[in-house]
Amino acid sequence: MAVTTMAKAINAGLRKALEDDPKVLLMGEDIGKLGGVFRVTDGLQKDFGEARVIDSPLAESGIVGTAVGLAMRGFRPVVEIQFDGFVFPAFDQIVTQVAKHNARSSGRTPMPITIRIPYGGGIGAVEHHSESPEAYFAHTAGLRVISPSNPVDAFAMVRQAIACNDPVVFFEPKRRYWDKADVDLTADITSATSPFEARIVRPGGSVTVACYGPMVRTCLEAATVAAADGTELEVIDLRSLSPLDVPTVAASVRRTGRLVVVHEAPVFLGMGAELAARITEECFYSLEAPVLRVGGYHTPYPPSRLEEDYLPDLDRVLDAVDRALAF
């Protein structure tokens, strides 16, 4: 066990993947000498060489497009998009090529590509550095979309993503990069929970709160506050957005009768909308209140001085919990 930040846990996970499989290679902007703008790839080029840890030209479509060719050639590319807002030049390659290749080739050439994207706000950044574009990707068949919320999961999930034969969009909650936890850096992924399953991170009987990535910590903090008032929140870390582990959430909602979904991304057509629809279908007779969503607004991500007003916080989670209970 070692006290490790999420950034270091992902670094350790990448290192293990590079050690375990010579076909794994990393590509991205500034991931070599600099070690990435968040230092997630720190030291990897030094230890694995420039042929396996590749500083790419400044072109996201180029990064993902060449990853497709490398995958066809039997490699397992792990590409880094420097920030959420810079994935869009690669959107065409991801949506029209990466996502569809397995189906088009009748499974003959899978696309074991991992696309790492630091995402979300809360770090006081300038435009395009704080966004949560996960719904675009979850909307696309053929892509798996996952997001760790803590260092322990991050260490396992990044390796599971790389080991997966499907393309995985791996969203890293950048404002949690510096969160620390005890991580067993010798842990094997064969014994780890599937990254495509949700996990109940705090059991409770009053209201189910489903969240992922950066919002898990926020919701756990809300649960602590709620508990002092006698309200027991059951906090579920979804971990995976595609596939979406509806059965775990449904089982919880059958116990609590209430669901609040929390994410930073805009609520309109977001993951909460999908979950609300599915839970309404599956748990209609268990629901004591409509499914409520807490998330971003239908506005561009605001300038950083306003981001606290935009981002869901403990108060907004508790407000939704109160509204769910008041029904």
Partner: peptide, 10 residues
């Protein structure tokens, strides 16, 4: 330079 990448990378 493009952040840490020298011209030869482009």
């Amino acid at each position: 330079w493009a952040i840490s990448e020298p011209l030869e990378r482009q």
